[in-house]
Amino acid sequence: ARYHDEKKIIKDILKDKGFVVEVNTTFEDFVAIISSTKRSTTLDAGNIKLAFNSL
C-alpha cells in the first residue's frame, strides 16, 4: 500500500514541476527532479525506482 501512496506523491511532484518522463529520460534526471522537493524526503528509494520503471 505504501508504494501506491508514494507513486501518487511522485506523480504529483512531476506534475508540479512540469516534468514529463519520456522514453529517453534517465533515472538520474528523474531522481534529480523528485529529490528537489521536501516531499521526497520520506520516499523509499526502491519505490522511486519502481515508479520510474512503471512510467
Rank of each mutant, 00 (worst) to 15 (best):
D16S: 11
L43P: 08
E22Q: 10
L55G: 05
Y3T: 01
G18F: 00
K15A: 12
R2K: 10
L55P: 05
V31M: 14
D44G: 06
H4M: 15
V21P: 05
A32I: 04
D29P: 04
K49W: 14
K38P: 13
K17V: 07
D29Q: 11
S54C: 05
G46C: 11
D44T: 08
G46H: 10
I13E: 05
T42M: 12
A1F: 08
F19A: 06
F30N: 08
A45T: 11
A51W: 01
S54T: 08
T26C: 06
T26Q: 13
V21T: 07
D12K: 06
F19D: 06
K7C: 14
D12G: 08
D5W: 11
D44A: 07
S40T: 04
H4Y: 14
A1W: 07
D29S: 12
I33P: 02
G46T: 12
T41W: 02
D29G: 03
K7G: 03
T37H: 14
T25R: 03
V21R: 03
K8R: 11
I34G: 01
D5A: 15
L55M: 04
N24C: 03
S35A: 12
I34T: 00
K49E: 11
S40Y: 08
A1N: 15
N24F: 07
I10L: 04
D44E: 06
K49L: 09
K38M: 07
A45S: 12
I34N: 07
N24R: 04
K17D: 00
A1Y: 10
I33E: 06
T42V: 06
K8L: 06
F19I: 07
I10H: 01
Y3C: 02
L14V: 03
K7F: 15
V23R: 15
D29C: 02
T25N: 02
G18Y: 00
E28P: 01
H4S: 12
L14G: 01
V23S: 15
I48Y: 11
I10K: 01
L50C: 11
A32M: 06
I33Q: 11
G46R: 13
K49S: 05
V23I: 11
A32T: 12
I10T: 00
D5C: 12
I9C: 07
I10P: 11
D12E: 15
D12H: 08
F27M: 11
I33A: 10
I9M: 08
H4E: 14
N47T: 06
A32S: 13
A1I: 13
I33H: 08
N47G: 05
S36L: 01
T25D: 04
K7A: 14
N53T: 15
G18P: 03
G18N: 14
K17M: 06
T37W: 05
D12S: 14
S35M: 10
T42R: 09
L50I: 05
I34D: 03
T37R: 03
E28K: 09
N24W: 03
K8N: 09
T25C: 05
I9R: 04
Y3W: 01
R2D: 09
V21C: 15
D29I: 06
D29N: 06
I33Y: 00
K11W: 08
V21E: 07
K49V: 05
D16V: 02
G18R: 06
K17Q: 08
T41P: 08
F30T: 06
S54D: 15
K8S: 09
I34P: 06
N47C: 11
F27G: 01
D12P: 00
D16M: 08
K38F: 06
L43F: 07
T25M: 03
G46W: 08
D12Y: 08
K17R: 09
E22S: 14
D5Q: 15
S40G: 15
G18S: 05
D44M: 02
T25H: 05
F27V: 02
H4Q: 13
L50N: 03
A1G: 11
L55E: 05
T25E: 03
K8A: 09
T26R: 11
E22C: 09
H4G: 08
S35T: 10
D16N: 08
V21W: 09
I10S: 01
T42S: 12
T37A: 11
I33K: 03
D29F: 02
S40I: 13
T41R: 14
V21G: 03
T37S: 14
F30L: 02
I13K: 02
F27I: 04
F30Y: 12
K15E: 11
L50D: 11
K7S: 12
E28N: 06
F19P: 04
L50V: 09
F30H: 00
L43R: 04
K49R: 14
S40L: 09
F30E: 05
D12A: 11
K49F: 03
I48Q: 00
G18A: 06
I34R: 03
H4C: 10
I48D: 09
R39L: 11
K49Y: 05
A45H: 11
K11A: 13
R39E: 13
K49T: 10
E28Y: 04
K11R: 08
I13W: 05
K11M: 15
F52L: 11
N24G: 13
S40Q: 03
I48R: 01
I34Q: 03
L50F: 04
T26G: 03
L14I: 11
V23Q: 15
G18M: 00
T41L: 13
V31H: 12
V31W: 11
F30S: 01
A45F: 14
T41H: 12
K17P: 00
T42H: 05
S40P: 13
R39S: 10
A45Y: 12
S40A: 12
D12R: 10
D12Q: 13
R2F: 05
S54F: 04
V23M: 14
E22W: 00
A45M: 14
T37N: 13
D12T: 07
S36D: 11
T37L: 00
K8V: 11
K38S: 12
T37V: 11
V31E: 09
D5M: 14
T42N: 09
K15V: 07
H4K: 14
L50G: 04
S54H: 09
K38G: 11
K11E: 13
T41K: 12
V23F: 11
K8W: 03
F19E: 08
V21K: 02
S36V: 01
K8I: 06
Y3H: 01
E28F: 05
K11L: 15
D44Y: 04
D16Y: 05
F52S: 11
V21Y: 12
A32N: 13
I9V: 07
R2M: 08
L50S: 12
T42F: 10
G46P: 01
L14D: 04
T26W: 00
N47Y: 07
A45C: 07
K17C: 06
K7H: 10
S35P: 01
K8E: 11
E28H: 12
F30V: 01
T37F: 04
H4V: 13
F27L: 06
I13A: 01
K8Q: 13
T26P: 10
K17G: 06
L43C: 06
D44H: 09
A32C: 05
D44R: 00
T26V: 05
K38I: 07
L43D: 04
D16A: 08
